[in-house]
Simulated scan of single mutants.
Amino acid sequence: MMDIGTLRGLGTLLVFVAFIGVVLWAYSGKRKPSFDAAAQLPFADDAQTPSASQQVSRSNHQ
């Protein structure tokens, strides 16, 4: 039978392996284009979509 120390050690090992997996996934070359596109989203031009105040203003004038 395993004692609590062995179970905690196995749990730590499992979390460490999962962490390494996430790091490898995040830094893989296949993900770079989608991460680059997501990084540019805050700078996207919002001129194509009218703001809420513009929509209210338009509906009041009709």
Rank of each mutant, 00 (worst) to 15 (best):
A47R: 12
L10N: 07
G29C: 05
F43M: 11
F16C: 11
K30V: 13
T6D: 08
S53Y: 03
H61S: 03
G11P: 00
V15T: 04
V23I: 15
K30D: 10
A26N: 09
Q62A: 15
N60V: 02
I20K: 01
V17F: 10
S59P: 00
K30S: 14
R8L: 06
V17Y: 06
W25N: 03
D46R: 12
K32T: 13
F35C: 05
R31D: 02
F19W: 06
V56C: 00
P50Y: 05
G21T: 05
T12F: 04
P50A: 01
A18P: 02
D36R: 09
P42C: 02
G29A: 10
A26C: 10
G9W: 05
H61D: 01
L10D: 00
G29Y: 10
K32F: 08
Q54M: 14
V15N: 01
S28Q: 13
Q48N: 06
L41Y: 12
S28P: 08
F43T: 10
A18V: 15
R58Q: 13
V22Q: 05
A37C: 09
S51D: 09
L13T: 09
Q54G: 07
P33S: 10
L14D: 00
T49G: 05
P42L: 04
F35N: 11
D46E: 06
G5D: 02
A52K: 03
P33G: 11
S57W: 02
Q40G: 09
G29P: 06
Q48L: 13
H61Y: 01
L14G: 03
V56A: 06
G11R: 03
S57F: 04
A38G: 07
R31W: 06
R8I: 10
M2Q: 07
T49Y: 09
V17E: 03
A44P: 08
R31M: 12
Y27V: 14
T49I: 14
L7A: 06
V56T: 04
P33N: 11
